[in-house]
C-alpha cells in the first residue's frame, strides 16, 4: 500500500475490542497525518465499548480534501485488527487489493466465556485464504517491553510501516499523546512494531 498516488484518499480501519486502546492508536495516527499536511477525517463508534463490545475507528486521509469520515464497505486499504476474530468480522470493509494486519490475540466474548460457543480455531488461516495478511504478536512484544498495555502502539507501529507513510516525526506525536512517564515505553513499542516484519 505504498502511498504512490498522492491525491487518492486512503482508508485505514482499526478494529478491536473495548479496552484494547484502538482509540488512542487512532488518535496518534491521525495526529501524525495531520502534522504532515494531510487532510484527515476519523470516526469512532464507542457507545458500548467499555462493556466488551466490538469497536471500530475509521481513518481517511488525502492530500486533497476528504469528505466522509466513514469508510465504505469494500474500500478499506488497510484493516488493522487488534484481535483476530475482529479482522474477520469487518473483512467486508476491505478493498479488493487491501491488506490486513492482525494481532495474534484472542479475547473471548460472553457467548464463549459462558461455554455456549467456542473460540473459532483457524481464524488466521481463514483470513489468509481471503486476503493478504500480516500477523503480529503485539501482546508478546509489549510484555517483553515490560508493559502489556502498549500493545496498541506496537500495532500502530506495524500499521504505519504498512501504509508507507514517511517523514513523520512519530516520536514527538507519541510524546504529545501519552502520559509523560509512559513516553519511553510507547516510543519503544512503536519502534518494535515498525521493525517487526
Amino acid at each position: 500500500m505504498k502511498n504512490d498516488c498522492e491525491n487518492k484518499t486512503l482508508s485505514v480501519l482499526l478494529v478491536g475490542v473495548g479496552g484494547q486502546g484502538t482509540i488512542l492508536a487512532g488518535k496518534i495516527m491521525s495526529a501524525g497525518l495531520e502534522q504532515s499536511g494531510y487532510d484527515v477525517k476519523m470516526s469512532e463508534i464507542h457507545g458500548m465499548s467499555q462493556r466488551g463490545g466490538s469497536v471500530t475507528t475509521h481513518i481517511r486521509f488525502s492530500k486533497d480534501k476528504v469528505y466522509s469520515p466513514v469508510i465504505e464497505k469494500g474500500k478499506a486499504d488497510l484493516i488493522v485488527a487488534f484481535e483476530k476474530m475482529e479482522a474477520m468480522r469487518y473483512i467486508d470493509y476491505l478493498a479488493k487489493d487491501g491488506k490486513i494486519i492482525v494481532n495474534d490475540f484472542e479475547i473471548p466474548g460472553i457467548p464463549i466465556t459462558m461455554g455456549d460457543r467456542e473460540y473459532p480455531k483457524g481464524v488466521l488461516e481463514a483470513l489468509k485464504a481471503q486476503a493478504e495478511v500480516t500477523v503480529i504478536n503485539a501482546n508478546n512484544i509489549a510484555e517483553e517491553l515490560g508493559n502489556p498495555k502498549v500493545m496498541n502502539v506496537v500495532i500502530l507501529g506495524a500499521a504505519v510501516k504498512k501504509t508507507g507513510l514517511e517523514g513523520i516525526d512519530w516520536q514527538s506525536i507519541i510524546a504529545e499523546n501519552v502520559k509523560p512517564r509512559f513516553i519511553d515505553v510507547n516510543i519503544a513499542a512503536f519502534k518494535a512494531g515498525y521493525d517487526c516484519e
Binding site: G53, I91, A131
Partner: peptide, 17 residues
C-alpha cells in the same frame, strides 16, 4: 460495492456485557 464476505464460522458475536 464489491466486497469479501465474513466467514461466519470464524465470527462469534460480542454482545456488550
Amino acid at each position: 460495492n464489491a466486497s469479501r464476505k465474513p466467514n461466519a464460522d470464524f465470527v462469534v458475536p460480542r454482545p456488550p456485557a
